[in-house]
Amino acid sequence: EINVTSHGEEQAKHWIELAKRMNLDVEVEIHGDKIIITIK
């Protein structure tokens, strides 16, 4: 399980695309200006 804290939408999209390509599950939480991505 990987937790990524992203401070930008572009960076977040990059991680989500990467996870989808690798067929991994992704959870995205938004806390103000921080985007927390959990890849399982």
Rank of each mutant, 00 (worst) to 15 (best):
V4G: 06
S6F: 13
D25M: 14
E9T: 09
I37Y: 01
E9C: 15
G8F: 15
K34L: 12
I39R: 01
E27L: 11
K40T: 06
V26T: 01
I30P: 01
W15H: 04
I36H: 02
D33M: 13
I2Y: 06
I35S: 01
G8W: 15
V26Y: 08
G32I: 07
A19R: 13
I30M: 03
G32R: 07
R21Y: 13
A19F: 15
I35Y: 04
K40N: 02
D33W: 15
D25I: 15
N3E: 08
I37P: 00
E17M: 15
V28R: 00
H14I: 14
L18H: 02
I16P: 07
N3D: 05
V4Y: 06
H14R: 13
H14T: 11
Q11P: 04
V28T: 01
A12W: 15
I36D: 01
I16Y: 09
E29H: 09
I37K: 00
V4R: 05
H7N: 09
K20Y: 15
D33R: 08
A12P: 05
K20P: 04
K40A: 03
I35E: 00
H31K: 09
E17A: 14
I2A: 08
E10G: 06
R21D: 05
R21H: 06
E10M: 09
E1W: 14
K34D: 02
D25K: 14
I36G: 01
I36W: 08
I35G: 00
E29N: 04
H7D: 06
E29D: 03
E27R: 13
I2F: 10
I16W: 14
E27H: 12
H14P: 04
D25V: 14
H31R: 11
G32K: 07
K13S: 05
E29F: 13
K34N: 05
N3T: 11
I36S: 02
H7I: 12
M22F: 14
V28Y: 02
T5A: 07
V26K: 00
E17Y: 15
T38K: 09
K34V: 10
N23V: 15
K20G: 05
W15K: 03
V28H: 00
I39K: 01
D25S: 14
I2T: 09
T5S: 06
N23D: 03
I35A: 01
I30S: 01
E9Q: 09
L18C: 14
K40P: 01
M22V: 03
E29P: 00
A12D: 06
I2V: 10
V4L: 09
K13P: 03
W15M: 03
I2Q: 08
E17D: 04
D33G: 05
K34Y: 14
R21K: 04
K13N: 07
M22D: 01
I36R: 03
I2K: 08
H31D: 04
E29M: 12
E10S: 09
I2W: 11
N23I: 15
I30C: 14
G8L: 15
A19H: 08
A19P: 06
E9H: 09
E9N: 08
W15Q: 06
V28W: 04
Q11W: 15
E10I: 09
N3V: 14
R21P: 07
G8E: 08
I39H: 00
W15T: 02
I39A: 01
E29A: 08
G8R: 09
K13F: 12
E1F: 11
G32Q: 09
E17H: 14
N23R: 14
K34T: 09
N3S: 09
H7A: 10
W15L: 04
I39S: 01
K13A: 07
Q11G: 07
T38G: 01
V26H: 01
K40F: 11
T38W: 13
M22P: 03
Q11S: 10
I16V: 06
A12Y: 14
K20S: 07
H31A: 04
T5M: 08
D33S: 12
T5L: 08
A19I: 11
N23T: 13
G32A: 08
I36E: 01
I30Q: 02
E1K: 08
H7G: 05
A19N: 08
A19K: 08
W15E: 03
E17W: 15
A12N: 09
N3R: 13
L18R: 08
V26R: 00
K13T: 04
K34R: 11
R21M: 10
E17G: 13
H14L: 12
N23W: 15
L24H: 01
G32P: 09
V28L: 04
E29G: 02
I16G: 03
E17P: 14
V28M: 03
K40L: 03
T5Q: 07
N3K: 13
H31E: 06
K34M: 11
T5Y: 06
S6G: 06
E27Y: 11
R21N: 03
I30G: 01
H31C: 13
G8M: 13
R21A: 08
I16S: 04
I37W: 02
L18V: 04
K13Y: 11
E27V: 11
I37Q: 00
E27I: 12
N23A: 11
V28K: 00
S6Y: 09
A12R: 06
G32L: 12
K20N: 07
V26P: 00
D33V: 09
E1D: 07
E9D: 10
D25T: 14
N23F: 14
H31F: 11
T5F: 11
I35V: 03
I37H: 00
K40M: 05
N3W: 14
E10N: 07
L18Q: 02
Q11T: 10
L24A: 02
R21S: 05
I36N: 02
I39D: 00
D25F: 14
D25Y: 15
K40E: 02
